Simulated scan of single mutants.
Amino acid sequence: MDNTGAIQNMADTGRPRHLPLSCSPFFTSQDVDEARARVAQVYCDHRLEPMGKRGFDARHNRLAGSDLSINVMTYSAKTMIIPGALKEFYLFQYPLSGHASISNGTNCHEIGGGRSGVVNPSESTCMIWGEGCTQLMIQVRRDALQRTARSHFGLPDGQSLRFCGANDMRAQEGKAFLGLLNYAMSGDGVLGTGGLMGQQLETTLMVGLLQTQRHNLSEQSLEKSGALPRAVRLAEEYMSAHIAEPLTLGTLARETGVSERALQMAFRAGRGRSPMAVLRDLRLERSWQELSHAEPGTNVTDVAMQLGFYHLGRFSEHFRRKFGCTPSEILRKARRL
Rank of each mutant, 00 (worst) to 15 (best):
G250Y: 04
M10E: 05
G112T: 05
V278S: 10
S225T: 05
V72A: 08
F319P: 01
G297A: 10
Y310K: 05
S151L: 15
R268S: 15
S122R: 11
M1R: 03
R261D: 11
P229F: 11
R59T: 12
I111K: 00
G297V: 03
G52F: 01
G55F: 11
T193M: 08
R38W: 05
R320C: 12
L210S: 03
S240H: 12
M206S: 09
A58H: 06
F177D: 00
R335D: 07
A85I: 03
G208C: 02
R47G: 07
L210G: 04
R261H: 13
I70K: 02
E290V: 05
G174Y: 00
G194F: 08
H109P: 01
P327N: 10
S274A: 12
G270T: 02
I82G: 09
Q264M: 06
C325G: 02
P25W: 14
H293S: 15
S274D: 14
R162I: 06
T74K: 08
S122A: 11
M169V: 08
E260Y: 09
C44S: 12
V42G: 05
V278E: 15
A166V: 01
H18N: 09
R54A: 13
P229Q: 14
Q264N: 13
D188S: 11
D2T: 10
A149R: 06
F177H: 08
R162F: 00
G270P: 11
R36C: 04
A144S: 10
R150K: 13
L178I: 13
L91D: 01
L205S: 08
Q146S: 12
G5S: 10
L337S: 08
N182W: 13
R271H: 06
L291P: 05
A253R: 03
V140N: 03
M73I: 12
K333W: 04
D67M: 14
L209P: 02
A334Y: 01
L21E: 07
E202W: 10
G189Q: 10
T212E: 01
Y94I: 01
S116R: 00
R321E: 15
L86C: 03
N120K: 09
T298K: 03
D2S: 10
G132L: 02
E110S: 14
G113L: 07
T4H: 12
Q199K: 08
D168H: 02
G195Q: 11
R214F: 14
D57R: 06
G132Y: 01
V72W: 15
L63T: 00
G179I: 06
H99I: 03
H18R: 02
V118D: 00
L86W: 10
D33W: 01
Y238P: 09
N61W: 03
R62C: 12
T74A: 05
G174C: 07
P95L: 10
A253K: 01
S76N: 09
F315N: 02
I70G: 00
S76Q: 14
P296F: 07
S328E: 15
R280A: 15
M305V: 11
T106M: 12
E219F: 02
V232K: 01
Y183S: 00
A77H: 04
L209V: 00
R115Y: 15
